[in-house]
Simulated scan of single mutants.
Amino acid sequence: MKNQKVTQTKKPTKERIFEVSLDLFSQKGYDRVSVREIAREVGIRESSIYNHYKNKEAILDAIIDYFKSELNQSSIPEGEGEDLIDKGPEVFFNVGAKLYIDRINTPEMEKIWRLISIETYHNDKMREFFKKELLEEPLNVWENNFQIMVDKKMIKPVNPRTLAYEYFSFVIFLFFEYFVLKYDDDFDSFMDLALDRIKNHTEFMLDAIKIY
């Protein structure tokens, strides 16, 4: 524990503010945490917070930006998606699922997912973020992916938007299952299980729509 504290104090102050804020926000919710409490946990004066962040909302914005950056890096790089699809739908889905799970399988991302699940209900900014970045954008991406598969005659000519909803709704289900219903369960074991369940769901879908 002593070595952990020494490591913490060696980190830049702004990074420590970010980490402490994320810890507190994910435990209590954004509104129930004060700048004074953050400063106390970091071990600095309250006024020192404002040397690094304009206000508490700016800390939340930084957390959201970090989350978006990590999610973007979990996506198949632009220009490589169609090449993967050409190798077969199974390859495309398996690579995509692995990238996604690997990127969110960190303590920081776990806390942010938890924070999102808390704040979506009453924080307008977080609700809009969830709606746009975690629902609308992924659905658009998956609709495009399924349209490519239809055009290449890899799958039956089913409405690609319907397929996008069918595929991505299962991912949203897993989000609520873990980050709302089973948050206290072991994170690593859940992520291993989640990857298997996504693969099983994908296989089930492809069995129904793939052209052999």
Rank of each mutant, 00 (worst) to 15 (best):
N159E: 15
P157V: 14
V150C: 10
E128D: 14
W142P: 00
K111S: 11
E137Q: 08
P107I: 03
R127T: 02
M154N: 04
F130I: 03
M109L: 15
Y121D: 11
I148Y: 09
K153Q: 15
F129T: 02
K125E: 14
V141T: 06
I116H: 00
T120M: 14
M109I: 10
M109D: 09
I118L: 15
E143C: 14
M126F: 02
Y121S: 11
T120H: 06
N145W: 15
I118M: 13
V150P: 02
P157C: 07
K131C: 11
N140T: 10
F130K: 00
N144T: 13
H122T: 05
N140E: 15
E110Q: 12
V150K: 05
V158T: 13
N145R: 10
K153A: 10
E119A: 04
L135A: 10
M109R: 14
E137Y: 07
N159Q: 08
F146A: 00
K125I: 13
E110H: 13
S117A: 12
F129Q: 04
N144Y: 11
K152C: 06
Q147D: 11
E137W: 08
K125T: 13
H122A: 09
K153F: 08
K156W: 05
Y121E: 09
E119S: 03
E133Q: 13
L115C: 04
N123T: 05
K156F: 07
V158W: 03
K125M: 13
P157Q: 08
N140K: 12
E128C: 04
S117T: 14
I148H: 03
I148A: 07
F146Y: 11
M126W: 01
V141G: 00
K153V: 12
Y121V: 02
R127P: 00
T120L: 06
I118Y: 08
E133S: 15
R127V: 00
K111A: 08
E128Y: 12
K131L: 15
K156Q: 12
M109S: 09
F130S: 03
E108F: 00
P160A: 06
P138G: 05
L134H: 01
Y121W: 09
Y121H: 06
E119N: 07
N140L: 15
E137C: 03
R127Q: 03
Q147R: 15
V150A: 07
W113L: 06
E136D: 14
E119Y: 00
L115G: 01
K111L: 08
V150Q: 05
I116N: 04
L115E: 03
I112N: 12
R114D: 01
K153S: 11
E137D: 05
M149V: 02
V158G: 01
N159V: 07
I148E: 02
N144F: 12
E119C: 04
K153T: 10
L134K: 03
E128R: 10
D124M: 13
K156V: 08
F129R: 02
P157G: 11
K131M: 15
K111E: 04
M149H: 00
D151C: 06
S117Q: 15
